[in-house]
Design a protein around this nucleic acid. Structure first.
Length: 588
DNA sequence: TGCGGCTATTG
DNA sequence: CACAATAGCCGCAG
């Protein structure tokens, strides 16, 4: 089966003749400067086009037919975004693989092997090139045959052999489509196939969003950022020598408060810091911030050390080097985004976008003529617990703006205690102040608590768990043998807590992503772009004139998303929304 | 040079 | 100081 080369204006007609319409699957592979390959189930052979600008062809099909594009991974979306084309929807084979099989690795060879029940450990690789290796005599054969006789994908194709030839791009697109069909069959076998199919759509489209987030970046005002950093570590050093002097002076300011004879202590060495503190009469088992905070007044050295830590953190992780590396001349701070981490499936971002110190939020400023619309989901995890467990009593509590108020009343405790108990139940805390209230929870919300216990037991036994949307969360962490009895108990308990939390955190991540991709779609006509996703928070960059419209849109999208994610409408979800000029202006 | 431990920051 | 993540530096094994 080889691709048929056609002209761009024939493509839409060919796809339409093959009954491709809105939402139908179309396999896609592109390489700028080379061409594009397209495949559809009712197309006799995949279509190959040799074109300089494949994105233009894709855009044309998108406008005319708006299919659901089947791509091997977000890398395809990233190429298209680079070329100025944003897809509406996708079936991301790698994302679906992560959902179905767990873990993070989802290269085409591994995906293909899993779908054909082949040993993933035996996936073929290319022999390493060395001075003595001859070009393999079967190279030519490998280039026309992506699937080997033994059923594995040919490694040359996995490594990009398709990308220099339109005919091979077409074949590669057809294989993506074939992988999607096999994935669809696996979905059917899951406990809740319809939920999983909805998750496939939202998780795949979230990968498109990630490609855009990576390309667009977060609007950051460089002068503001430099001012915040300067407040912690002083002005930007002009030379390496100046930087070293600045650093040495920071160290010296702490050591001047140390007992005599301690001037040579390295503050970055934990054993040295511990002995330094001991000589100053401060005895601590470790030097964590919360522990030192309690000893702040016992010796001037402690307060100085805490300040030093703060400055050191800014200097090493969120300082001038960070800005230079991550903040573009266009005022956008860029990191790489992934749609799901290896565990429960939350989105992750590099470059510190998810753990930027709060002090830097004042540097996140909307561009001229724009505002941010920021919204965060209120008490998302207990509300998700109510939804995924089907606990009627807890669902009743979600009708209140503050869910902990009715829970506290039910348990006969104060709000703070109720909150600690609920969070403790979801995180697996079994000791301390919450233990008493935990028994109250068992009585008041038995369905929800049983749901958590079930996940805990499953994970403790080393069995994988699945989230509400069907994501497999693997439990095979840690080496197997050579454990003492108490180590084995600790391992089992850790697994239990992990599994208990994964079904909540993972389901919350699924709802969040439905919300995010819904906002992405609905807000695009208003020229609004999501610029940050933060687990339960969205930051949307919007032309000022549309600020209020997008603000109410975010809530509409949440209601729509919640109904789509969990069609039983018994649980109430809410978002707190504000229209602001800079991130630090938000109340939240 | 790679990896585990410790630390800080965020949700 | 429970659950998750990224990221930096130190100390140690190889």
């Amino acid at each position: 089966m080889s691709g048929v080369a056609v002209e761009p204006d024939v493509v839409v007609a060919a796809l339409r003749a093959a009954s491709v319409g809105r939402g139908d699957l179309v396999g896609l592979a592109v390489m700028p400067g080379v061409g594009v390959g397209l495949a559809a189930p009712e197309l006799a052979a995949p279509v190959a086009l040799a074109v300089e600008d494949p994105a233009a062809v894709v855009a044309m099909v998108e406008d005319e037919l708006r299919p659901r594009w089947v791509i091997w991974s977000g890398a395809t979306a990233a190429r298209l975004v680079e070329a100025g084309v944003r897809l509406a929807t996708a079936w991301d084979v790698a994302a679906v693989h992560r959902l179905l099989f767990g873990g993070w690795k989802a290269e085409p060879d591994r995906v293909w092997a899993a779908l054909h029940d082949l040993d993933p450990g035996a996936v073929p690789t290319l022999p390493p090139l060395d001075l003595f290796s001859q070009p393999a005599h079967d190279d030519a054969a490998a280039l026309v045959r992506p699937v080997r006789p033994d059923g594995y994908l040919e490694p040359r194709w996995v490594l990009g052999a398709a990308e220099d030839d339109p005919q091979r791009l077409a074949r590669w697109a057809a294989l993506a489509l074939e992988a999607a069909a096999l994935q669809e069959r696996r979905l059917t076998a899951l406990p809740a196939p319809d939920r999983a199919r909805r998750a496939v759509r939202s998780e795949s489209t979230a990968e498109l969003l990630c490609a855009e987030l990576s390309a667009d970046g977060l609007p950051v005002d460089r002068d503001e950022a430099e001012a915040v950093i300067a407040g912690f570590v002083g002005p930007r050093p002009r030379t390496a020598l100046e930087a070293a002097e600045q650093r040495a002076e920071r160290d010296a300011a702490v050591l001047r408060l140390a007992p005599p004879g301690q001037q040579g202590v390295d503050l970055r060495s934990l054993p040295q810091v511990k002995s330094l503190l001991r000589r100053a009469g401060v005895e601590v088992p470790d030097t964590r911030k919360w522990r030192l905070e309690a000893m702040r007044d016992s010796h001037p050295l402690v307060a100085a050390l805490l300040d030093w830590r703060k400055a050191e953190r800014i200097s090493t992780t969120f300082g001038y080097a960070w800005l230079d590396e991550r903040l573009g001349v266009d005022g956008r701070l860029r990191g790489e985004w992934t749609g799901s981490d290896g565990a429960a499936g939350r989105m992750t971002a590099s470059a510190g976008l998810h753990n930027m110190p709060a002090a830097l939020r004042r540097a996140v400023v909307a561009e001229p003529g724009h505002v941010f619309v920021r919204a965060d989901l209120g008490q998302i995890e207990p509300r998700v617990l109510a939804a995924v467990s089907g606990d009627r009593a807890l669902a009743e509590a979600t009708q209140e703006d503050d869910l902990y108020a009715p829970v506290a009343a039910q348990l006969g405790v104060d709000r703070a205690t109720a909150k600690v108990a609920v969070l403790g139940a979801m995180y697996g805390q079994t000791t301390g102040h919450g233990a008493q209230a935990l028994r109250g929870l068992q009585a008041a919300y038995p369905v929800a608590m049983a749901h958590l216990d079930e996940a805990d037991r499953t994970a403790q036994g080393g069995w994988d768990v699945r989230t509400y949307g069907g994501r497999l969360v693997r439990m095979g962490f840690g080496p197997a043998g050579e454990l003492t009895a108490s180590q084995a108990r600790a391992r089992a308990a850790a697994r239990g807590r992990y599994g208990r939390n994964a079904v909540i955190q993972g389901a919350a991540a699924e709802l969040f992503k439905v919300w995010a991709v819904t906002v992405r779609a609905r807000a695009a006509p208003l020229d609004a772009r999501i610029v940050l996703c933060l687990h339960d928070e969205l930051l949307v960059h919007v032309p000022t004139a549309h600020g209020d419209a997008v603000s109410s849109l975010l809530d509409d999208c949440l209601q729509e998303s919640a109904a789509r994610w969990a069609p039983d409408r018994s649980v109430r979800f809410l978002a707190e929304t504000s229209v602001i000029g800079r991130w630090s202006d938000a109340k939240g």
